[in-house]
Design a protein around this nucleic acid. Structure first.
Lengths: 189, 189
DNA sequence: GTCTATACAAAGATAGAC
DNA sequence: GTCTATCTTTGTATAGAC
């Protein structure tokens, strides 16, 4: 991965998180990187493969960190959950960024099939990770709840994604803070 | 409002709910209505004003129904809440539709300012309506919960919006059904 | 009110010089 | 690896005939 390729991924990811996929052009990305439009093609053969590469990198960055925290014996299930919240709050602290896959979910049917697959895999992986954290919290009696862990995992993931999108549209940080408070209350032992 | 104008609004709304705003063109809409591209301009002066008209109509259709159910003395707060769920489940039963404003939320910063305002107003109105239903449920002792009604209203709205988007991306109806179950459990008296 | 024809800009993508 | 130049398609929008 060359330095320029990384800059293209960075710029593309930022622009998609900020404006969506259809509304982002090679020209936008090139300007942000400081190169000319056709130079992008040298690194990614077309817009779709750039899109796929952006999602895959985003997904694996997340996956690494999620894996690390899951296997750390010093971390409680609450630590893991708070860790999971942190990127959502990071994005919420910016004026215009949302989760990459949340941004794409509004126009998912307009995306090439290869990108749709990546979005789906991202969402499923996150829900499974959350489910494991919840099962762990229950087993260790750090958390308490009375419903199937996968149901709660879906609720947590979907409410965070929704809250981030609604936060950006309304410019109201309460959207995500209230969701966090509600999740914590649902799990309190 | 002429018949053609209505058909243009219908087609435009359906296409935005299905594919987003940036990815929908006058050509797409014209084809769906069965007219030529420039005929749309006769009814809506540009894409932005068509977008605004679509959101405003969507919003006022909702508002009428929400108002009606709120003022019906025969309806319990649970009836009102189930009524609120119904369009989400209707969209979820289609292969590709989400809430109009949920679809727009992923690309909201790419929208013209006039459209952004409408999206924001929609979300705020829905959360206020939910808040009133929750207060009502508490007062009538039909519901029971221990947090600020606006916090719970935000959680409900955001989780439904998120669930619908994630349902479409994953093709998994559990996404929205599990959110509904969790909401109901949170409010159970 | 709808059409044909067209203007103009911007999109994704390619060819080939350097 | 990056550039200029260009191709082709498609986008929004306009002019003017019918």
């Amino acid at each position: 991965m060359t330095d320029t390729a990384t800059k293209i991924l960075d710029a593309g990811q930022f622009l998609i998180q900020t404006r969506g996929y259809s509304a982002v052009s090679f020209q936008n990305i090139a300007t942000k990187v400081g190169i000319k439009k056709p130079s992008i093609i040298h690194h990614f053969e077309n817009k779709c493969s750039l899109g796929v590469a952006i999602i895959q990198r985003y997904k694996s960055n997340f996956a690494e960190q999620l894996e690390a925290i899951k296997n750390d014996p010093d971390k409680t299930s609450w630590d893991s959950l708070e860790f999971y919240f942190s990127p959502y709050f990071h994005f919420a602290s910016t004026p215009d960024q949302v989760c990459l896959c949340g941004a794409l979910s509004g126009e998912v049917t307009a995306l090439p099939e290869e990108m749709r697959i990546e979005v789906k895999l991202f969402m499923e992986a996150h829900q499974l990770w959350l489910k494991e954290i919840l099962i762990n919290g229950l087993n260790k009696q750090e958390m308490n709840f009375d419903m199937p862990p996968i149901q709660l995992a879906r609720m947590i993931f979907n409410s965070l994604q929704g809250a981030l999108l609604v936060k950006r549209s309304t410019d109201d940080l309460n959207q995500i803070e209230d969701v966090r408070r509600t999740i914590i209350k649902m799990l309190a032992a």
